[in-house]
Computed example of a mutant assay.
Amino acid sequence: MDWYRHKTWTKADEEFFFVKFSRARKNGRAQYLKIQAIELVETKNKELLEVAEGLLNKMLTEYPENKIDKSTALHKLGDIYKAREEYEKAIDYYNQSIEFEKSYPNVRSNSYLDFSELIVKTNKTELFDYVESVLEAELPNQLFPLSKYKMYSILSVINNRNGNNQKASEYADLADENVNAETSGLHYHKDLGLVKNRVSWIDKLVKKK
């Protein structure tokens, strides 16, 4: 296992990580903090989320010149707060990531989708138009049916809320098409990004005609 991919954070883990960290090249240290934080976020353990938050904040504070990893770090901070159900903070971090990517478009994360899901889930209708513009801008870049299913579903919910029933119905149909997709379109990874399970809370909000 790489020294920056711990799934636990005992005292020994922490000491080992920072010994290796101190010996690493300075231009790679921000990345190691980010990767280690992501590994801990994926455990969904409450205590490890706190450790991950500290590592990400350390990265953002001590390596402000690092642009490559910043968007993902902000995205993961959003994930941490979403896991804690602190949705306002999660939305803020996702939006910071989205705004950063406007200045550095070569750096991409899934913040646009997590942000959009959370806005709809918390029914922040004042941001629905903004979410619609974000998703419409991202759709041409999408390949995987799972992402398109979620995006079309959210767009359907928004348009239904805005009284655009025909458009809402069209988006709902497109969402269903992607649920039923049998291939990702990739030659060597045909199963990648397929819809394995529908998202029940989104489906409940989509009103089909």
Rank of each mutant, 00 (worst) to 15 (best):
K89Y: 09
K148N: 01
A73F: 03
K20A: 09
F18V: 02
A12G: 06
K46T: 14
A83L: 14
I119H: 01
V107D: 10
F100Q: 09
V179F: 10
K76W: 08
P145Q: 04
Q142A: 01
D203A: 03
L155Q: 11
N162W: 06
Y104M: 04
A73D: 05
K67A: 04
Y32E: 05
Y94G: 00
R84S: 04
D79F: 02
N160P: 04
S200F: 07
I119F: 01
L155G: 03
N159G: 09
E117T: 02
K167M: 06
F144N: 03
N27C: 03
L74I: 11
K121Q: 12
L146T: 02
K20R: 14
N66A: 07
S97F: 05
V157W: 05
E53L: 04
L60C: 08
G28Q: 13
Y87A: 01
L40H: 09
E126T: 12
E117C: 06
F16Y: 12
K190N: 07
Y81C: 08
I202L: 14
K190P: 02
S71M: 05
E42R: 15
H6Q: 14
F16H: 15
V19R: 15
K76F: 13
L135F: 01
L77Q: 10
A73P: 09
L194T: 06
K76M: 11
R25H: 14
L194V: 09
N141C: 07
F21G: 12
Y93S: 04
L55D: 03
A175N: 13
D13C: 08
Q31N: 12
R108V: 01
L49Y: 04
N123K: 15
V131G: 10
N110L: 00
E14W: 04
V206M: 11
Q142Y: 04
M151R: 07
E132I: 02
S71R: 09
N123C: 07
K204E: 11
E62S: 15
L48N: 10
S133F: 05
L205F: 05
F100T: 06
H187A: 12
R161I: 01
L192M: 12
V51F: 03
R84G: 08
N162H: 12
A168S: 14
A172D: 05
N160G: 13
V134H: 06
V131H: 08
I202Q: 03
E50T: 07
N27R: 15
N197Q: 14
L48K: 10
F16L: 11
R25A: 12
S116W: 00
S147V: 01
N66P: 04
K209P: 14
N123L: 10
S22V: 04
A24C: 14
T183M: 07
G54W: 06
K167Y: 05
D129Y: 08
R23G: 11
N197F: 07
K34H: 12
L194H: 13
S103N: 11
W3H: 10
F17A: 04
D13K: 11
Y4G: 04
D203C: 03
E88W: 10
V179K: 15
W201I: 05
E177I: 05
Y112I: 00
F18E: 11
M1E: 13
A90R: 08
